[in-house]
Nucleic acid binder design. Structure first.
Lengths: 199, 199
DNA sequence: GTAGATAGTTACCGATCGGTGCAGAACTGG
DNA sequence: CCAGTTCTGCACCGATCGGTAACTATCTAC
């Protein structure tokens, strides 16, 4: 076991720096966020970034983790709601809230990243694909349970319902990126939820 | 009125080249499509591209035009349907078809472009923003007419309905980019259309 | 033929990309 | 003080970015 502190201590707060990096990735996507833009926002030099986070891909991965545990924690929280309807309502509300957070870039880091990152950047792509798939499975499993509990009709299709919710959520996020206001988004979400359970 | 043909004739078909460029932009977005990738796909040199299309932004603009008049003509066609319900159904079907065209990149050139292009590229951004706004207005005006004609209830909100249709369409396109199959998408669209008119 | 115009090829431009080598600065344990 | 370790600042790497100058090739008009 090495000593707790060895060598020169770093002159910046790694957590704050990661937060800034997350915001840059959120706004510009993976490829659009240059090292210069990232390190400038983080307030550190290239070398310090590499020493602290590895490289651009690892930095993105850590920023994505921070994102899904912070501003985009709503998918995990929503499935804990008491009823399937509440799950869907909270999921859509969370997507809208995250996509229109004041002081943050409009839209979703994961979505922008998914559409931005090139084939060549395997690790980042895989992380995003995994995140999408897990999101779908989480919703689907929750709706399965709702069917078992009688909260949803016995002939309801949990897979379809999960995909429906994700589709509307993604659509709302895209609208938010285009400048649609929270109020307008909320009315669309309400309209979508008048159809419940879908299918 | 200059002479019809002057100087050395070009050795490639500009239309075919533009088609290839459109596919590259479709797959990689604006920033992700490098000049090398574009000209290689087009089968011409950089210089020929510049002589024929101006520069990258103009090439994108022309590719986008070709896109909305070709594979993505469905928004214009859908509003010509006889009823509001058919308009929405055809709009969603068109979005799904375009986003899953065999032999073409999954998803939508306009959507990928909108999420990919940086602030710095004004012209491309503006063209995409205009395209989105026109799409919304086209749908909204069509649903207004439907209200006037009694095809939609007098208290229906054309703006909301248009936004709803666009939201679902965009969500479906995102799903398609993630690998969701046509059949699965169609079931989501069906579910969304059970709720009609929305709101 | 020649003059004029446009297309094609090659090689290159400065800027920026992600990533590093190196030397010195700042810390801990002796 | 010293040795050992880690962080920082700066200059720099090769590769690629969008875009272009110079030259040659191929056409029309006369």
């Amino acid at each position: 076991m090495g000593n707790a502190q060895l060598g020169r201590p770093r002159a910046f707060d790694a957590d704050e720096a990661l937060e800034k990096a997350m915001l840059v990735f959120w706004e510009h996507g993976y490829e659009g966020a240059s090292l210069s833009a990232l390190t400038e926002a983080m307030g550190i030099s290239r070398k310090s970034m590499y020493a602290a986070f590895g490289n651009k891909e690892e930095l993105f991965h850590k920023a994505l983790l921070r994102y899904v545990e912070g501003p985009a924690a709503y998918p995990v929280q929503a499935v804990q709601a008491a009823t399937a309807r509440r799950v869907a309502t909270e999921f859509l509300a969370g997507a809208m809230r995250t996509a229109t957070l004041p002081g943050h870039p409009p839209g979703c880091l994961g979505l922008r990243g998914a559409l931005t990152v090139d084939e060549s950047v395997r690790a980042a792509r895989d992380a995003l694909a995994t995140w999408r798939i897990e999101g779908h499975e989480r919703l689907r499993d929750r709706f399965r349970r709702a069917v078992d509990e009688g909260d949803l009709p016995a002939d309801a299709d949990p897979d379809l319902i999960a995909r429906y919710v994700q589709t509307v959520a993604n659509g709302l996020i895209i609208q938010a990126m285009g400048g649609t206001t929270r109020d307008e988004l909320a009315r669309v979400a309400d309209a979508a939820m008048r159809n419940w359970p879908p299918g």
